[in-house]
């Protein structure tokens, strides 16, 4: 853009410096941290991808969803089945998982995008719970509550050795994460994304201009499902195990909360909040002084965040926005 003034020049520079620092930190992390911390970091990146997928729906389009765990779970189970029976090449598992999740999203999303607000929230919750029940009950494929274990280690590219070490798996996850993050941010100002923002801010007007808003909503719903499915596939590469809990309500709720705390609509805010939530739950919650009190810490985090960050983590940097439409 040629309209940048001296004030708006400093902000991109600062964020570029911060971005480079974060990227450097993420790249060096496996050389500095222990195996458990590196595996936690891998899980955080996967969870951040799921939060990005929720953000496409909730932040960008204004559709609050509690059902992304469904597509995350479909992707994870698909990747586990593919890894055990078809191929151990990671990117292939990822593509198949994303494709199956998007396919599942076509009929379920068709039902969901007919509604808005709290009704949309409850429809997606129903979809999530039904997929969870299917994961528990469809034993021949999913293994029931036992889940699928013994997933072979992931092979990043054809001809390369399988990744056994946590640090190497981490680099595979980081590479895919950066690729997908780049793809999502590249969407940033395309006409498609601008139309989605229009739907969030004033759907009747978008309809009046002639946009088929429901078709747009369904398209982004399927895209978000594919992203969640890709995250599910990475989850299996990290854990080498999948169980119904990975498709459960808690995952969906935490992903939605991450997007709200991150500042609805901001991609990096969602990632940062995802990391914050995951660290609070899995890292701080396991420290000796507060062992087992993870929920208490998480609850305090939510209460403090909602009062101190009215526009989310992303709002700390953003200039004042005109009053935003309610998202639910």
């Amino acid at each position: 853009m040629s309209t940048s003034t001296s004030t708006s020049l400093t902000a991109p520079t600062a964020s570029r410096v911060a971005g480079t620092a974060v990227l450097l930190g993420l790249t060096l992390a496996p050389f500095l941290l222990g195996p458990y911390a590196v595996a936690t970091l891998s899980r955080i990146l996967v969870f951040a991808l799921l939060a990005l997928s929720v953000n496409l729906l909730t932040g960008l389009t204004g559709l609050p969803t509690l059902g992304q765990s469904a597509y995350f779970g479909v992707g994870a189970y698909t990747a586990a089945v593919v890894a055990k029976n078809l191929t151990d090449i990671g990117p292939l598992q990822l593509l198949i998982a994303a494709g199956v999740s998007a396919l599942v999203a076509v009929p379920t999303g068709w039902l969901a995008v007919r509604a808005r607000g709290v009704v949309f929230l409850m429809l997606t919750l129903a979809i999530g719970e039904i997929v969870y029940s299917a994961a528990v009950n469809w034993k021949p494929v999913t293994g029931g509550t036992d889940g699928i274990s013994g997933v072979p280690p992931v092979v990043p590219l054809p001809g390369t050795p399988a990744l056994e070490l946590d640090g190497l798996v981490y680099f595979y996850v980081l590479a895919v994460f950066l690729l997908l993050l780049g793809a999502v941010t590249r969407l940033g100002s395309t006409p498609f994304v601008l139309a989605l923002r229009g739907i969030r801010d004033n759907e009747p007007r978008m309809k009046a201009i002639g946009y088929p808003t429901r078709r747009y909503a369904l398209t982004v719903y399927c895209g978000a499902a594919a992203l969640a499915g890709a995250a599910g596939s990475l989850w299996v590469s990290v854990q080498r195990f999948v169980s119904p809990g990975d498709a459960g309500f808690e995952i969906a709720a935490l992903a939605l909360l991450a997007v709200v705390i991150g500042g609805t609509g901001s991609m990096w805010g969602a990632c940062a909040a995802a990391a914050l939530i995951w660290l609070t739950r899995d890292y701080l919650g396991n420290l000796e002084a507060v062992a087992g009190r993870g929920p208490l810490l998480l609850g305090l985090l939510f209460v403090i965040a909602v009062y101190t960050l009215p526009r989310g983590l992303a709002g700390v940097r953003l200039p004042h926005q005109p009053s935003r439409k309610r998202t639910a």
């Binding site: 009190r293 939510f302 909602v306 309610r326």
Partner: peptide, 25 residues
């Protein structure tokens, strides 16, 4: 009350946080 103008999602975060805290206690 302070969140009345900020939409349902912020209220959801607050009340879910309260749920977690009270459930733990």
């Amino acid at each position: 009350q302070p969140l009345a103008r900020r939409g349902h999602l912020d209220q959801a975060v607050l009340t879910l946080g309260i749920t977690f805290i009270v459930a733990d206690l």
